[in-house]
Structures are given as C-alpha cells and as structure tokens.
C-alpha cells in the first residue's frame, strides 16, 4: 500500500512539473491556461497526500476557478486577436532561460546543501489545525484587521477606477429611477 502511495506521490509531482512546463511549450492561450490548471490540481492532490486535506481541496477549488476566469481574460485582452490563433507562449527567451536556470540551481542547491534538522516530536493529530495555528495563532488580531482593510481597498480601487459615478447613473439630483446603466441589471435597480 505504501509503495502505491509513494508511486502516486512522485507521479503527481512529475505531472505537476511537466504540466507546468507545458504552459510554455503549447501554442494556444487556452491550452497554456489549462496546463497551468492541471499543474495546480496535481499540487493540490499532493498537498492532500501530506494530510492537509482542507488546504489541498481549497487549492484545487481556487485554482480551477481562477484558471477558468483567467482563460477568458487572456483571450480577451491579448490584443489583435492572436489569442484565438496559435501563438508562442514565450518571449525574451535567453534572459528568461538564464533567470529560470539560475533560480532553479540556487533553490535546488539550497535543498541539497542545507543541514535539515531531525524531526522532533510527532505530527499533530489534526495537521491542518496545527498549520493554521502556527501561521495565524498569535497574529489573529492582525489578520482580522487586515481583511476588512483589504476588502475596503479593493472596493475603493474599483470605485476610483470606474469612469461612471452615481451622478451618471441617477442623474444630477440623484433621483432618476431606474438608474441609467449601459449594462441592465437583473433586479430593476
């Protein structure tokens, strides 16, 4: 059983790396996006093998959703419509290759050369809970404060970026109903 698990674990790791590499090899925006999605799904399953089931499943959920939306944006914003045609996924090849190789060698050397400590104690019964407490525990208050600030920043950013204001929607006296929207809403506002 444990050998099957080992093979599956390493197989998923290889699949994640190969799917990640495929992002730069394929010649279509859709294929690149979903190759990345496959890579993330493989990583999500790997995380489940580490018994971080919640983190693993959430990774799969978020990444598939994100890639589904990203594919739309990639196709939409890749000017002159090349996203609908075969196109290369790489540019600045030499620089990129040099940076990538240097980073890889650096990180891999780090993994091999660091004197990793031996395990002390044993894993907690619920590793997800342990991870959460380790990450957030003493900083919970900070996190709780940061979240609404981040949401407020996003909302404020969208409001500032939108070229239409409430005066465009509701008229100068703010009394026009329903609002004058280029995109009609579904609830009759």
């Amino acid at each position: 059983m444990s050998m099957v698990v080992d093979i599956a674990f390493w197989g998923l790791g290889i699949a994640a790396v190969l799917a990640g590499a495929a992002v730069f090899y394929v010649d279509s925006m859709a294929r690149a996006t979903y190759a990345l999605a496959i890579s993330f799904v493989a990583v999500g399953v790997l995380v489940m093998f580490l018994q971080q089931n919640y983190v693993g499943v959430v990774t799969i959920l978020m990444m598939v959703m994100e890639m589904a939306i990203m594919a739309v944006y990639m196709v939409m914003f890749m000017g002159m419509n090349p996203a609908l045609m075969p196109m290369s996924m790489v540019h600045g090849n030499k620089t990129a290759l040099a940076v990538a190789l240097t980073t890889f060698v650096g990180l891999a050397a780090g993994i091999l050369l660091v004197d990793w400590p031996d395990r002390r104690g044993s894993p907690a019964a619920d590793v997800t809970m342990a991870l959460g407490e380790e990450l957030m525990g003493p900083k919970m208050l900070v996190m709780a404060v940061i979240s609404p600030v981040m949401v407020a920043t996003i909302v404020a950013g969208v409001v500032l970026a939108a070229h239409r204001t409430r005066y465009d929607r509701f008229g100068d006296d703010l009394k026009r109903r329903p609002a004058d929207d280029p995109q009609p809403g579904g609830v009759g506002r």
Binding site: A37, V57, V58, I60, L61, V64, M65, M67, A68
Partner: peptide, 10 residues
C-alpha cells in the same frame, strides 16, 4: 464536492 462543481466551469 464544491471543488468538483467548480471543475464544471472549466
């Protein structure tokens, strides 16, 4: 279940 139903999008 939730993660799989998001797969339907893709």
């Amino acid at each position: 279940f939730n993660a799989i139903d998001v797969l339907v999008w893709a």
